[in-house]
Simulated scan of single mutants.
Amino acid sequence: MRKLLYSTLWITGLLCCTISCMEEQDFDQFDDLRVTPTLSSGIFYLESDEETINLAGPLGSFYFQEVTFEAFNEQYVAERLIEGTMTYQIQNTTSKRLRIVIEFLNEDGRVLDVERFDIEANSPDIVEYPVFYGAGGKNINILSSTKSLRVIADNLSVGSSVSANPDARIIFRSGAEFLFQLQ
């Protein structure tokens, strides 16, 4: 009798487990998964002392450089770019008014976009300028089509003034943050 009771309880328990605790698994959840990684990177850095700026003379260029920008040279990556932010930081402790121009160039050298910064003299605080691309900002195709950046820095002042700061210099740096849709 005991053996029959244990067997009945065992079979009942097994039936309850298979009926109540099991459900069919849905492995199609991966299709609903959306992955949007953010990539941050420094883009370029410009630093110049006041002596170099003075050598360029009044209204002369003291810096000219074309920087390769290959962040989106793979079509797979360029097509999945959702939005981006280019952030520029400027600190000028020189006695010079300056202008820095960044041109975004496509593979043919055609200008896609221009960022222009007129910088006042003796501004020791770091000033930050974010520029948004994508929803609510500039056209995202500017970033995905850019192959190089042309950076030009001009002296808008005379070529002989000297700052009271013994280590007077302009520091201009940029960085970027990009958001991608992988799935």
Rank of each mutant, 00 (worst) to 15 (best):
G13M: 11
G137C: 02
F172W: 00
A153V: 00
Q65W: 09
I152Q: 08
Y129W: 13
P130M: 07
I140S: 02
E177D: 09
V101H: 08
R99I: 10
R116F: 09
S174P: 03
P37E: 07
Y129P: 06
N73Y: 12
L112F: 07
R80V: 05
R80P: 01
K147E: 11
V35S: 10
F180M: 06
D154K: 04
D49L: 00
Y45C: 09
G60I: 04
I82V: 14
F104A: 04
N155R: 05
V111E: 12
Y88S: 11
N106W: 04
V162S: 03
S160C: 05
C17L: 12
V158W: 11
I102N: 11
T68C: 07
D108W: 08
F69H: 03
V127C: 03
G136K: 01
F104L: 09
F44Q: 09
F104Q: 06
P166D: 02
N141F: 10
K147D: 05
E47I: 15
T18L: 14
V101F: 07
Y63W: 05
E177N: 09
Y88M: 07
A176W: 09
A135K: 06
I11W: 10
T36P: 12
S163E: 00
G175C: 08
E115M: 15
I100H: 03
Q29A: 13
N141M: 09
T18P: 06
T85I: 13
L182I: 11
S48V: 05
R173L: 08
S7V: 08
F62C: 01
